Computed example of a mutant assay.
Amino acid sequence: MAMSVRRTLVGVYRGTCNSLKTVEASVEVRHPLPLVLPARTKKRYFIPPAVGIKGKQQEDPEARARAAGVVIQQQYMERPINIACTAGVFDPYIPPEGDARLSTLSKEGLKQRTEQIRQSAASQLAIRKIKEHDSLFSTKTFAEQAQEIFIEAHRALTQFNKEKLHSLVTERCYPEMTRGNRHKTIRWSFVESLEPPRVVHARCPDMVTKGNLYGQVTVRLHSKQTLAIYDRFGRLMLGSEEQPKDVLEYLIIERHLINPYGRWRLHGKIVPSWAPAKDPVIKTILIPGPQLKPWQEYDTLNYEVPKPAAVQWYK
């Protein structure tokens, strides 16, 4: 009985499926596509233009961002400025070749004499402006004052007294004096003055705005000095403490005249083109030695320092 009922239901199911297939084929029933819901992502206000597009006029990205309501911060290239001193030397003094040893009758001597007269006329006008702001300024006493500033600044340099050195030299001169002096020992002394210092040049320029005046005075200093520089191992690199040398220098002393608390400070030096070359600096180098073990000593090995092999260089 059960088997007959089962056979009857299977036949009915197969007939129903065949009839449904024929109906779908005749009516062309289409099944609906699956429903896709887009997920919300980050909203992009500004999309950069595509890379590599040629021949198309690219829009201004700032205009597109402004239209989208995005504010782009402007980048300003700001550079710090220091008004306590100038950044250089205005109309520098040209020292005569040989320091006035040439005859004024020669061609070069006449050129030097003419240049000195032209510079002295401008220096007189600058000295008048300096005296308007500094009533104590005098060309007779200022040269001695400049020499004292020069001596005190170099003494502070040998003692590495940064606070005192900043009060004696300008912000332009400070890095030039301290550059390369790390891990070194400096021995400097002022022996005597061979010639009395004198003012040879003066200028009174303005910077940033009109009326912001600075006084620059060039002082000729001929003296005898000693200088010795030692490296961090105590080896002599330059000069000697016992042998003094004659030094001819042209110092530039500057002051911010508008500042009532301004002081005369060392601003730089003028090195003439005809000045002799400086002595070379003897540098310390490391010679590679043997690899010592903890229980070994260098003296007991009798190690010989290898000499560099001769190399033939071709052009």
Rank of each mutant, 00 (worst) to 15 (best):
I81W: 12
P49S: 08
I72T: 07
F90Q: 05
C85I: 00
I53L: 13
T86D: 02
S103Q: 10
S103F: 10
P92L: 00
S106K: 02
D99V: 08
P96N: 06
F90Y: 06
A63K: 10
S103P: 05
S106D: 09
G88R: 05
D99S: 04
R64M: 12
E97V: 15
L102R: 07
E97S: 14
I53F: 06
Y76R: 15
E108H: 08
G69I: 00
R64K: 10
S103H: 08
V89T: 11
S103Y: 05
Q57D: 13
Q73C: 06
G98D: 01
L105N: 08
D91M: 05
G52H: 01
P80A: 01
M77W: 14
V89F: 09
V51A: 11
V89Q: 03
Y93G: 02
P92G: 05
P80Y: 07
P80T: 01
L102H: 06
R79I: 12
Q58Y: 11
E108M: 07
T86R: 03
Q75H: 10
G88P: 01
G88H: 04
K107G: 08
E78N: 09
V51L: 12
L102E: 05
A87M: 06
P96E: 06
V71R: 14
R66T: 12
A100Q: 10
V51E: 14
P80R: 03
I83Y: 09
D60W: 00
R79T: 14
G55P: 04
V89N: 03
Q57E: 12
E62V: 12
P96H: 05
G69K: 03
A65D: 04
P49F: 04
I72F: 13
I83Q: 04
M77K: 13
P80L: 04
L105A: 09
G98A: 00
R79D: 11
V70H: 02
D99Y: 11
A65N: 05
V71C: 09
T86P: 03
L105G: 02
K107Q: 11
A87G: 15
A65Y: 01
D91T: 05
A65F: 02
K54T: 09
Q75Y: 12
D60I: 01
